[in-house]
Design a protein around this nucleic acid. Structure first.
Lengths: 208, 208, 208, 208
DNA sequence: GATGAATGAGGATTCATTCAT
DNA sequence: AATGAATGAATCCTCATTCAT
C-alpha cells in the first residue's frame, strides 16, 4: 500500500516527504509538548488531513521515536569523532563541550523534546533506549573526566559524576534560550561556557 | 459550595486538605507531566472521586497555578533574605547558589513542573507571571554578578547574562537527578557546584 | 428535622424564608431557564450554601412545582371572580383580558417559566397538572366566546378555539417584553389589546 | 479533518449530511429544549456516535447557531419579497401575516427554539445577532403599520409598537400548537388571524 | 498519496443530592 | 438552620486511529 517503513527502497522523494513531516512534528512537539500536540496540529501544519499522516507513520509515537533516534545517533557519532582526536584532557573536554553545543543546536527540537518528555516517554518499553543512551553519554564523559583527573589536569576534589551533570545540564539547557538570530554566535557562547567551566567565574588569587 | 479560595486564616483543617491535595497533584504533575496527569489520577491518589476535587479547585489549571505561585513566592523571599546579608560578591553568589539548592529541592515537584511545562503554560495569559518571575530572577542575579565584576572579584571577560543562565540551568536541573536518599547530601552537591562555578574544574596553573 | 412540608404549623418566619427562596428561584428560572439554573445559583443568590437549600426543599423540581402551582391557583381564582360578575359577552371578555394582564404580570416569573419550560416539564407525570390546567383555561374561554357568539355579539365566522389561542398567546407573551417601569401602564396596554382584539386594527368602512 | 464550515458549493452529499444532522438537532432542541438535549441524544437519533458529530460541527452551540441563522435569513428574505409587491396597507399587513405563518411553520423547530431559548442564548455575544434581528423585524413592521395609519387605513388610536407585538406574539406562538396534520389548513388559520386582527372579534355596530 | 466519515475510549467539568457535624 | 466535604452520574468535547473511496 505505501511507505511507512520504506527503509530499503525509499526513493529520494518519498523519503523527503517523511523528513519534512518529521521536521514539522518535531517543531510542534518541542513548542507545545508531545501530548499537547495533536495529530491534527501536525497535519494542519503540513497542509494535509490528519488521517493522511497515517500513510507515512504508524502512529504519533513512531514520529517522536524517529525524531529522537535521529538525534541520539548524530550525537553519538559526533562524540566519537571528537574523542578520536587525541589531545590533553582539557582539550578533549573543551572539544566535547563545543561539539555538544553544535549538535544540540542543530537538533534543537529533538533536544527540547528529550528534556521535556523523556521522563514519561522513558517509562514505556519502546523508549527504554533513551535511558540506555543517557547512560552511554554519562559513561563517556565520566571516563574523560577521570582521565583528566589522573593526568593531574583536573582538580582532585572533583566529583566526576556531579561535574558531568553540571556540564550536561548547563550545555543542554541552553537550547531553551539560545537564539541563533541573536547577538551572540553559538561559538561565542560555547567558549564562555568552556572558560567558566574550566576556570570558574572567579578571578584567581592563585586558585585556592 | 465552599472553599475554592482558601483566603485568609482559614481553620487548619480546611486549608490542610487543600494543601494535601496540591502536594499530591504536584507530585503527579512532576512525574507524568501536567497534561498527561488526569484529574482522575489525582483524585485516585487522594482517595476521592474526580468530581470531588472540584469542591476544592476550579480546575486542573488552578492547581498548577497555585503550586507554581507558591514556589515562586518562596524563592523570591528566600533570595531577598540572602541578599539582605552583606558580604563580598563571592560570598553573595555562593549564598545564592546554596539557597537556590535548598529552595529548589524543597519544592522539587514545582521546579520540575516549571521546567517541563512553563514553555507552553506561559503562552496562556493566566501564566504570564511565569515570564515576569523569570525576568525578576535574571535581573537579581545579573546585578549581583555585575557588582562582583566591578569589585574585581569576578573575571572581567565574563558575560554576566550567560553566566547567569549557566548557573541557573546547572542548579535548577539538578532537581531531575538529585536523590535525597542517596549518598550525597544536598549541601555537598551545593558546595561542589559553588567550587566548580567559582574556580572551574581545571587545576590552576595560576589561572590564565 | 425541619420544615420541608411544614404545611400545618409553619410559623410566619419559617414560611417567609421558604417564600423568599421561591421568589429568588422563580426569578432565576425565568431569566436563565430551569435547567440552566443550578441549585448553587439559587443558593448563591440567597446567600447560603447549595446543600442548605435541601433543608427547605426536597429537590429543584419541588421548587418549580410550588412556583407553578401558586400561579395556576391565583389565575384560576381570579378568573372565577371575573366570571362571577355578569355583563354582556363583550364585557366579560374585556374583563378576562384585563384580569389576565394583571395576574400574568403579578406572576411574571411563573408565567415565563410556564411558557419556556412547560413543554418538557409536562412530559413528566409530576407535572401532568400543567396540561390539565391548560385545558381548564381553554374550556373557560371557549365557553365565554361561544356565549358571545350565540348572543350575536361576536362574529359568527369566528373559530372560537383559534380565537382563544390568539388571545392567550398575545396576552401571555406580553410578559416577555412588558416593562413595568416603562412609559406605558399595564392598564393602557390591556386597553389597547382589548380594542385591537374586539374591533381590529383596521378602520371600519362599516365592517364587512 | 474536514467539513465544519460547509462553505461554498460543496458537493450535495457533504452538505446533505450536515443538513440532515441539523434537522435532527433542531427537532430535538425544539422538543426537549437546547440544554436538555444532549449531544448523545442527537447522535443517537442520527445513528452515529456522539463524538462523530464533532466531525461536522464544532460544538452544540454551533448547531443552534446555524439553525437560527438559517431561519432568520429565510424570514428576512420572505418579508422582503412580500414588501416588494405594492398594495394598500391592509393588503401589505395581511400579506406579512400570511407570509409569517408560512415561514414560521416551515421552520417550526427553529421558531420554537427561538422562543424558548433566545432569552438566555442572547445573553452570550455569539448570539447578539438575535437581538439585532428582532429589532429589524420590529422596524419593518412598525414602518408598515405607520404607513397604514397615515393612509387612514388603520385606526389613529393604535400604538403601533404594541400592535406589532400583539401580532408577532399571536402569530409566532401558533407554532406551539398548530398541527399540520389536523383539521385546519395553515391558510385557514392565517385567514382567521388576519380577520381577527384587522376587524376584531366583535361584530361591528358600526365600529365605535 | 490523500479524503472524509466515522469510531471508541477517555478527559475535564458540572451538578443535584446526601450527610455528618 | 446551615456548613462543608463528598458522591456518582452525566455532559460536552477531544483525539488517535481506521477504512472505504
Amino acid at each position: 500500500m505505501s511507505p511507512k517503513r520504506s527503509s530499503g527502497t525509499r526513493g529520494p522523494s518519498g523519503s523527503r516527504r517523511r523528513a519534512e513531516l518529521l521536521a514539522i512534528a518535531a517543531d510542534l512537539f518541542a513548542r507545545r509538548g508531545f501530548q499537547a500536540t495533536t495529530v491534527r496540529d501536525i497535519a494542519d501544519a503540513a497542509g494535509i488531513l490528519s488521517g493522511s499522516l497515517y500513510h507515512h507513520f504508524d502512529s504519533k509515537e513512531t514520529m517522536v521515536d524517529e525524531i529522537l533516534r535521529d538525534f541520539l545517533d548524530s550525537q553519538r557519532r559526533a562524540q566519537e569523532r571528537v574523542l578520536a582526536d587525541s589531545g590533553d584532557a582539557r582539550d578533549r573536554i573543551a572539544g566535547l563541550v563545543r561539539q555538544s553545543f553544535r549538535t544540540v543546536h542543530r537538533h534543537r527540537a529533538a533536544v527540547v523534546i528529550l528534556q521535556n518528555e523523556s521522563n514519561h516517554l522513558a517509562t514505556s518499553d519502546r523508549f527504554a533506549y533513551l535511558r540506555a543512551a543517557a547512560g552511554d553519554f554519562e559513561r563517556t564523559w565520566t571516563r574523560v573526566l577521570q582521565e583528566g583527573q589522573r593526568a593531574g589536569v583536573l582538580r582532585a576534589d572533583l566529583n566526576v559524576k556531579l561535574a558531568y551533570r553540571f556540564i550536561r545540564d548547563a550545555v543542554w539547557t541552553s537550547v531553551h534560550w539560545y537564539n541563533p538570530r541573536g547577538r551572540l554566535t553559538l561559538t561565542a557562547v560555547a567558549e564562555q561556557y568552556v572558560t567558566i567551566l574550566c576556570d570558574g567565574i572567579a578571578v584567581a588569587e592563585t586558585k585556592r
